[in-house]
Design a protein around this nucleic acid. Sequence first.
DNA 1: GCAAGGTC
Length: 744
Amino acid sequence: MSLTRIAHSPYTLVVCEKPNAARRIAQALGTSSFKEISALEIVGRRGLPPVFSVVDRNNQHFVVCSALGHLYGLVDVNGNRSTYPVFDVKWMPILKKRNRKGPKTATRSVQIIKSIFLLSQKATRFVHACDYDQEGEVIGYNVLEYACKNKYESSLRAKFSTLTDEEIRNSFDNLLKPSKGLAGAGRSRHMIDFIYGVNLSRALTQSFKVSNDRKRYCNLSIGRVQGPTLAFVVDREMEIRQHVQEPYWNISGEFEKKGHIIKVHYYQQKISTLSEATSIVNACTNEDGKITGIENQKVTFKAPTPFNLGDLQKEAYRVFKFSPSYTLTIAEKLYIGALISYPRTSSQKLPASTNYKKIISGLSKILFLGGTSNNESTGSRGTYTNLAKSLLARDNLSPNDGSKTDPAHPAIYPTGEKPKGKLKAVEVKLFDLIIRRFLATFGDPAISGHTTVTILVKDNYVFRADGKKKIYEGWMYFYKPYNNRSDVETDLPELHEGDILRNVVIRMDKRFTQPPPRFNQVSLLEEMEREKIGTKATRSEVIETLFKRNYISSTSTHQRKNNGIGGIETTGVGFAIIQSMRKYMPSIVSTDLTRSMEKQLEHIESGKAKSSLVIGYAINKIKKAVVSFKEKETEIGRQITDAVISTQNKHQQRVLGNCPRCSKGVLKIIRSSITKKRFAGCSNYSSGGCKAIAPLPQKGSIETIDKTCALCRWPVVKTVFAGQAKHHWEFCINMQCPSKKQQQ
DNA sequence: GCAAGGTC
């Protein structure tokens, strides 16, 4: 341990939230002597956040250390997961891994805490320099209170919103008092979420256990964010089921001028009765039209805004069909590879201090060999060389910043670094999307011309024809493979007011009103954003949890409509959970809990309310709910149990689906007596000689999800690897499926 | 094998 090496002079210990921030802060503060000390020298362990020793402009000595997000979390003092209610909780170092056989092993958090403790021993002053938000305040509070031993009150707070040299130096020149209110509010938030979530989750799990005589186990959960999110899906499901289709009629037709066919539609989009529609069609059939108006409009589309995490997730879903959590996982890898900036941001703004030209010329050197299908690279030059050139030729570059901000991080942008190793195909895809989006934010507005022609038939019936033409490509040049608006131009011939058009045909189509579309992963995420539940970094995880618990599932292929692929529907379990919660703890499934909690926390923050009282109130409420829940335990359990068991049975069945080859048998999971490996084979093999066969992964559980591949009609199944339920994987079992060829 | 929130 070489604490002696840094402790020649008295120093201020600076506590940061994450290693990156520590490095930036040390760089900004330090003058010439910038020293990095490995954790190996402090606690004898590698792989922990580095510590920096710097001397600033005023010759003050700083030692900058870092947490790794939350190092402390709440634990149930009792520790028995099957008892509830539990109100006796305390803050403890987060222990993630434990040895299966032996005692708990010290984790990374414990090692970091130990190293910060040692550094704190010789510090004369403490600066809290975590992100300036509620969670950041808590992270620093816990480090200063527990690791540094009661130093929060005497510490000073560095307040900055971006990690630029200027802001950091400025914040250290103007250190504030710690925000006790903010820390109290944050810690209360943890407490309330724990008390509600853990107690109700245990209550649900227990009720299932007792009502099936403890034969089966099913992990059920609910919480302040899970509850309302599940309720969104359940309520939408109800709306869809209760929807009554109403018919309406659409009238369209074709006119002709000098051999050009012009498609027209009746000005009124929906005609509600058959008689009205018929009378219009009858009246207009074979009647020529006269142009009474031509309106030309120039429509401009501003460049897109820089990505924040939500925007990136939406776009990656739209163009690649990546689920939001998958996108975050890939983005994290790109971030760790130093290819993009920090992805968990809600900001749509790029800092003015960014050296755009440097990044862009860096990007122009990147070349994806056969990576993206859509580069316009020429010869051996980089994938983005041409795009970069056209931007670098400009005098000044300013991105089209959006309105959303983030206290801790700028929008997502590529760093301009070249990938060090070979990227996976999905990483290339997401990286390409981020690069092109970044380039496109500097582009000019795109302009297209829209023409609306009004056609009158028998002086009484109004039809319209629309034309669309690209006038100026602007930013779309950079974002080409991913442009949303259809590039299809609808051409109109040259037309003038007063022109007579020959009537070719007028027709009507019967349509029906549609129920609202099912949520997909992205629209559910958007709903959570709108209702302000969860955070940018956790929303997609919560959706994954609902899948993992079998509360929600992807709709079967044949049911896919409206919003296309990946609709989410609720399962029987999801229904049962929401029903029983609505009965016994209605606030947990509505967004009210979040709303009222936020209000209480604001009061704590401003000093108007005491956190102990707010938490006491929450405890009281949960106590009452738990009592009435326990009384009805068997009754609730029965409701949930039926749903759980039928879902479990469904998932455990060995039949994967109908055999697409012989259409008589079913594909079943079979274990080979020779190789002991499992595979899918047709039940019609011995009697009918059907040789349909497909390999299956040998590890993990295989679940049927009532889904058939859209391309080859073979069953689609889901595998979950033990302990990694988050990363379940759906695939068509047919090795010859065209979808597998497309992916190569 | 319980929440939600940080970060790797």
